[in-house]
Design a protein around this nucleic acid. Structure first.
Length: 646
RNA sequence: GCUGGUGUGGCGCAGGGGUAGCGCAAUUGAUUCGUAAUCAAUAGGCCAUGGGUUCAAAUCCCAUCACCAGCUCCA
């Protein structure tokens, strides 16, 4: 007797029963349900229930259901490619957040031009509506089966499965693929799909292994949903900082200057200046001491810090790094060893701690040529850097302070809601990348883990193995960009190794020399990256307090240029960033131009305004405009700027 | 670094072995206007750079550089 719990009903069966039949015994199963959860495991509708179970059904609206749906779509893609290119070798093809992909070993590599033909073949397969049938084979038979089909990658995958693993295959028509499943009942359910791109991807994500050809696609149960999704991607593309940042004149790049070296135009420079002044003042308020340290140092200096052993590939070296008889320098990729010299300047007492050092620090990192992206990944960047030198008993309180500062900064910018946390740890199986002993790492990670559990709660952060800095574990605050890709915006790190390397000590209460803890942290991250994320968040229409130009004054005709200029001067004298368009173009044209620039406030002045010392305000945000006295308008702007209103 | 794609006036594009084109922007006139585009004229390009093939290359081939998507790596 098998007991099945479904939708609150308790069913019982004499013999094993499929999920579908079990559910259908209660009521007809709606076609929207495409998979099920049995005792917490996602399975297909034809899964055989052989023991007591609790069932819930999954539709495309469930993330797990969508994964099943798109995974089947990836099998359809694989069948289509095998049909059109019989010599292509299958590898893997999972569902991902917004779609699916499949990696093929195929020569020559597929290009975007090949996708329409593959899509056409996929349509045939979907129309044929073949059932997906699961079967299993013992290990050796499974290997022989895939060897016979000349699928070496599949053979490799099977060999790497644990001894006790069930090796399952899915068959649709003539196409068979090694796959854990689950899948849709048949291919016909895939009513709408699109292949979106094809690119290279390393076998098993390992850059020493062969580069395969990855085809990305997405699939939906109906055409409208697909259309909506593609339109949403189009919209996101319009917010891409790399597009609007250039169009709106925030930054540019120049071939002859070099990769990853953006030129900040006046608007971008202004925003970064505003951010920098804000952060420096805020840090001063929070007890930070300002430092200014060299942008480069000698080879021997970086040998002490460990950068020479662990980070040389990432550094710009001036001189021959291997000729020990000649002087050799490197541009700094990190601020730590330089800022430590401030502490080392004289003998320190425990009374001086915590010592909070802050610096607007420009760094240079020799990223591989393919890594650069707009303002997100560059080779020279400036961060709100800081190091806190601490007694052990101060660690928790100061770590909390760093997190609070980061939160204040990101909340003010409006980015906090897009952030997630990652506890970045070392990889105990890859110790050569890191300084220090397993004991030191265990201690640092234990201390940090406790802090994070306490401050964030274990459920609110993920763990990233092999994501640590070479000298210690990190809390990385990850911010999603407009395409949903994550990048680190703020990092808070605990370092117990570099302090020792540089011989940092303080005289403790009991007169003993003690090595301090150090927190590395940024308060707002890198200015270039933050600007990029802000441009995307606000689609170029930055909040008033960060707008490079806050007001554009437009006279209805040149007869009112004098008054327009007076308005401009009044606002400028109050510290506002304001332009007056006194040219001879028509008013409508000027308004249009100011709107394209995403100016927060457009002020129109004519005879009425001149006579009453007022302004007609057209605001970017609806409902904020109208006619008001010049004095009131000025006060309104100043208060909005002070509030850092979004 | 790897795979693929793309480089034509400031921007967006068309063209394509034999006088380099369009729209927007710019400049100069005219226009003086009340909340999303006034009219006209003018100017602006070694078709990314360097090699080749050819009687002839922006166009075909090779290399380099830059940009884009993704992989790998990272803030």
């Amino acid at each position: 007797m098998i007991k099945v719990l479904f939708n609150g009903a308790e069913l019982s069966f004499d013999a094993p029963v499929t999920v579908y039949d079990a559910c259908a015994s209660v009521a007809p199963v709606s076609r929207e349900f495409i998979a099920a959860k049995v005792n917490g495991n996602v399975v297909g509708m034809t899964h055989l229930i052989e023991a007591d179970a609790e069932i819930s059904l999954l539709s495309f609206a469930d993330a797990e259901g969508a994964k099943v749906f798109r995974h089947t779509a990836s099998h359809v893609l694989a069948e289509a490619v095998k049909t059109l290119y019989p010599t292509a070798k299958l590898t893997i093809g999972p569902a991902i957040d917004e779609g699916f992909y499949y990696d093929f070993d195929i020569t020559p590599a597929l290009t975007p031009d090949d996708l329409p033909a593959i899509e056409a073949e996929m349509k045939k397969i979907i129309k044929a509506n073949a059932k997906l049938e699961r079967f299993t084979l013992p290990r050796e038979e499974a290997i022989a089966f895939m060897e016979e089909r000349d699928e070496p990658y599949k053979v490799e995958l099977i060999r790497d499965l644990p001894e006790d693993a069930v090796i399952s295959f899915y068959k649709q028509g003539e196409f068979v693929d090694l796959c854990a499943g689950p899948h849709l009942f048949s291919t016909g359910a895939i009513k709408a799909f699109k292949l979106t791109s094809c690119t290279g991807a390393y076998w098993r994500g390992d850059s020493t292994k062969k580069m395969l050809c990855r085809v990305y696609g997405t699939a939906f149960p109906n055409k409208d949903a697909l259309k909506a999704h593609l339109e949403q991607i189009e919209e996101a593309r319009k917010r891409d900082h790399n597009k609007i940042g250039r169009e709106l004149g925030f930054f540019t790049t120049v071939d002859t200057v070099g990769q990853g070296l953006p030129i900040m135009l006046p608007k971008g420079s202004r925003v970064i200046q505003l951010l920098q002044r804000w952060i420096e003042d805020e840090e001063q308020r929070r007890g930070y001491l300002l430092t200014k340290t060299p942008l480069m140092g000698k080879r021997e200096f970086f040998k002490i810090s460990g950068h020479w052993d662990h980070y040389l590939d990432g550094m710009f070296v001036i001189g021959d790094p291997y000729d020990e008889t000649k002087e050799c320098f490197a541009l700094r990729p990190m601020t730590c060893p330089f800022q430590y010299q401030v502490f080392l300047n004289k003998k320190r007492s425990y009374r001086e701690l915590p010592m909070r050092l802050g610096e607007t620090s420009t760094l240079f990192r020799n990223e591989d040529s393919g890594e650069m992206h707009g303002l997100i990944r560059v080779r020279q960047f400036t961060i709100s850097e800081g190091h806190l030198v601490l007694r052990p008993d101060q660690l928790a309180e100061e770590f909390k302070g760093c997190l609070e500062l980061a939160r204040y900064c990101l909340e003010t910018l409006g980015l906090w809601e897009d952030c997630t946390f990652r506890f970045s740890q070392w990889d105990p199986n890859n110790t050569s990348k890191y300084e220090g002993t397993p004991e030191q790492w265990d201690e640092a990670q234990a201390v940090m883990g406790e802090l994070l559990d306490d401050l964030l709660g274990r459920e609110n952060y993920t763990i990233g193995i092999d994501e640590a800095a070479f000298y210690g574990p990190k809390l990385d605050i990850q911010c999603k960009n407009v395409f949903g890709k994550e990048d680190t915006i703020v990092t808070i790190q605990i370092d117990m190794l570099l302090a020792k390397k540089f011989g940092m000590e303080y005289v403790d209460r009991d007169n003993s020399m003690t090595t301090p803890y150090i927190i590395h942290r940024t308060s707002m991250g890198c200015y270039e990256r933050t600007l990029a994320l802000l441009l995307e968040k606000y689609a170029g229409a930055l909040p008033l307090w960060l707008s490079p130009n806050q007001v554009t004054v437009i006279p209805v005709s040149t007869a009112f240029n004098d008054y327009a200029d007076k308005v401009r001067q009044t606002l400028a004298d109050a510290g506002l960033r304001v332009e007056a368009d006194l040219g001879t173009d028509t008013m409508k044209y000027k308004i249009r131009a100011a709107q394209l620039e995403k100016t927060p406030y457009i002020v129109i002045v004519g005879e009425n305004e001149m006579n009453s010392e007022s302004v007609s305000v057209r605001a970017r945000v609806e409902g904020e405009g109208g006619v008001m006295s010049l004095c009131d308008f000025k006060a309104k702007l100043l208060s909005e700027v002070a509030e850092k209103k979004r």
